[in-house]
Design a protein around this nucleic acid. Structure first.
Lengths: 243, 243
DNA sequence: CCGGCCGGTTGATCCAGATCAAATTGGTCA
DNA sequence: TGACCAATTTGATCTGGATCAACCGGCCGG
């Protein structure tokens, strides 16, 4: 688990990456959506593209926070561990999400790839210098961090006060919304993460997640398919998720 | 509960508030710590000072987010409610804390005074204009929001994976640290919030919080006093809090 | 084609913390 | 001073979700 060296592709960015950012499929969704052509060129110059296989680590809690990341392809899980191994998944990152904001000089959570992932990686130093000169971009970062905070607050409500049934329903509804936001509007909700990941995200055990999904299926709220679920009764799911 | 009209003092800020910010006891702790004399004067011009009694509302979830706040005196509780009344306290604000960051145009949580509170209140409009011209200040805001996010992530770990005993110990240790940070290093940890507030912050019931504190006292880890607790065995508390 | 393995499901039982129900304390006001 | 009220503590019991334990099914390597 974790710790696997990742491969950095495009070692000569000035040639191989030329125009890469302009062609980026998730640019408008990501922090780069706030950059004009000129700034995009500079951003491109200071960023490196990297690819990770499923379960490879992007970074680990406690490491010096040397880089920031913008996810372009795939899903990442962000999590914290207790000394005895208990794990809390604090979020799943999707294409367009920005990772590595940290008030300290070390990462305070770990991140690794759920499935195959691509990221833009920037040294924290270069990134800090870049934003200092661009107030407009700084506002964009601010919006991203604020949105992250809002999601975290919503998750605190879920973890502290919702029942297992409400947790699972809220997860499915929320995940579906996030997929729709990045342009995935398929009727089947794709769930690339394992049941254990979901359980650790919701503060439950794998058995409770499994039983709850099975019960939802028995009650005709959804159908479990390989790699995801298909919602049949969206209204009921949303009602459960809302309270 | 909530909804009580607050009194705004100093209606003529250019006279009555002159030099107010320069004399602010928590300036260096707050977002204003990043402002020079000139900026401070402008900040003063666009801010209004307000005082609230215990249990008065600063703002309520769902309201148009017309203002941002910097807490100068007292303690505020920030919380979210479920339709059926279940409550999750998502944080306690102390002097120097900045409130009202919201990616949407409405507050996504409620805030009210735990004890007597003073705040600097700025219209969101004026605040937005103010920061846009000052990249350095925007960086400061960013640090505050990032720190808030880090605390939220730590709280997710607590809510999802810690036992009742660990939750209470972690709360006491964390609260003591925050009090120390604002200059309150008294041996007795002041707890102005009710047991219900603590329970709603930790995802527990009031009975469990009470029983856990009583047990800690029986085990000589602390002494319960009116308005707070006195830690006797800091090492044990920190060990419990860490895992 | 087979066997083992891994992720997921299902079943039986347990228990930490919730719920229900009284006391007890402490502060406030007449 | 005393009656009252709200907050807190304490006690008894219950239960949702955890834990412990098989079992299942799909996939992969031989």
């Amino acid at each position: 688990m974790g710790g696997i060296m990742i491969r950095t592709i495009s070692p000569n960015p000035n040639r191989a990456n030329f125009g890469r950012c302009s062609a980026c499929a998730v640019r408008s969704l990501s922090i780069c959506g706030a950059l004009d052509q000129a700034d995009l060129g500079e951003f491109e110059r200071i960023s490196r593209h990297a690819h990770l296989e499923a379960n490879e680590a992007l970074f680990t809690a406690g490491q010096v926070a040397a880089a920031v990341h913008s996810l372009t392809v795939g899903v990442a899980r962000l999590y914290k561990l207790l000394p005895d191994g208990r794990r809390q998944v604090i979020g799943f990152a999707l294409p367009g999400d920005f990772l590595g904001v940290s008030p300290a000089d070390r990462y305070n959570f770990s991140a690794d790839a759920v499935d195959a992932v691509s990221v833009c990686r920037l040294s924290r130093e270069a990134f800090t210098h870049f934003i200092e000169q661009r107030p407009h971009f700084l506002m964009r970062i601010n919006e991203f961090v604020s949105r992250e905070l809002m999601l975290a607050q919503e998750q605190m409500l879920l973890l502290g006060r919702r029942t297992a049934e409400e947790k699972v329903a809220a997860f499915l509804v929320g995940w579906r919304e996030r997929l729709a936001h990045i342009g995935d509007n398929r009727q089947t909700i794709s769930l690339p993460m394992s049941r254990q990941d979901i359980a650790d995200y919701l503060g439950l055990t794998i058995e409770t997640v499994s039983r709850t999904l099975t019960r939802f299926e028995r009650e005709k709220m959804l159908v479990i398919v390989t790699g995801g679920v298909r919602l049949l009764d969206t209204d009921r799911a949303e009602a459960l998720a809302a309270a």
